[in-house]
């Protein structure tokens, strides 16, 4: 029956609805370009969600751990073999996502007898200057969103990922006004934590169209910080070393946000 075209469309729509429901509880991840690099941040996780992919590339993901793992391995394999056969500078996030990950995810999604990837991913590649940073979000159906200037938007120095579209849009509208590429790590950290809180608050309700009050955000953040850990990683802009990724522990970060 799925051979009939309109049944296929229906099956795809059902599948989309199912995946969206599965991803809806995913805790937000924010990636912010700042003066000395790119910061990835999320909160309160039981399993790791931010990963190093290659020298200048990192990834954050929500979804099923098994699917995230397969995609992560695929990305690392591709980047590593490219870096080995050519050079580390030839490994590019744009190519990795556009030519390899996105087609794979799209075909898995549309082959309705096979399992789709239950994952939504956020990639970033650190550039020599903040303007050269690249952020790409890849959806379970292979759809790609970029931080670069498009017909609909100006270039952004950040990208976010969340369980629902509403949550993501609120985080984006917050960061659009609060964050700039010349921020320090401390400033980026604070914006990222606030953005995370806004995104997470939105996941708890269904009708949050407006940004919440400042006081409510910081109260919510304090409550969360009291009993959950921060997971973060940075891609450093420092050209003196080849490998730019470094994970930041909760212990390192707490003093930076104490005031």
């Amino acid at each position: 029956m799925i051979e009939e075209p309109y049944r296929w469309v229906e099956a795809i729509a059902n599948r989309r609805e199912y995946i969206e429901a599965q991803l809806a509880s995913g805790s937000p991840i924010a990636a912010l370009g700042y003066h000395d690099g790119i910061l990835f941040l999320t909160l309160g996780q039981t399993r790791q969600k931010i990963f190093e992919i290659y020298d200048r590339i990192a990834m954050g993901a929500i979804g099923h751990p098994g699917d995230i793992e397969r995609l992560r391995m695929g990305a690392i394999e591709l980047a590593s073999t490219e870096g080995f056969t050519r050079s580390a500078t030839d490994v590019s996030l744009r190519r990795l996502v556009h030519y390899s990950l996105s087609p794979v995810m799209k075909s898995a999604f549309e082959q309705v007898y096979g399992p789709p990837y239950l994952a939504r991913m956020l990639f970033a590649e650190v550039g020599e200057r903040p303007e050269e940073d690249l952020f790409l979000r890849v959806e379970y159906d292979g759809e790609i969103a970029t931080s670069g200037a498009t017909f609909a938007q100006a270039r952004q120095d950040f990208a976010v990922l969340s369980g629902t579209q509403q949550s993501r849009e609120l985080m984006e509208s917050f960061l659009k006004t609060e964050h700039g590429a010349d921020a320090s790590l401390e400033a980026a950290l604070k914006s990222a934590l606030d953005a995370w809180s806004i995104g997470h608050m939105s996941l708890q309700t269904t009708d949050a169209k407006e940004l919440p009050e400042r006081a409510a955000v910081s109260k919510y953040l304090q409550e969360q910080l009291a009993h959950t850990g921060i997971e973060a990683g940075i891609l450093e802009r420092d050209k003196s070393r080849a490998i730019r990724y470094r994970s930041l522990s909760d212990k390192e970060l707490r003093p930076l946000i104490s005031d």
Binding site: G74, S80, S100, V104, S107, A108, G114
Partner: peptide, 23 residues
């Protein structure tokens, strides 16, 4: 059902496969 023509290799147990083996 045809097997998926997915492009990249899927390695389910990274520990079993070191980098020279991947190459």
């Amino acid at each position: 059902m045809e097997p998926s023509l997915v492009a990249f290799d899927q390695n389910f147990s990274g520990a079993a496969d070191d980098f020279p083996a991947l190459l």
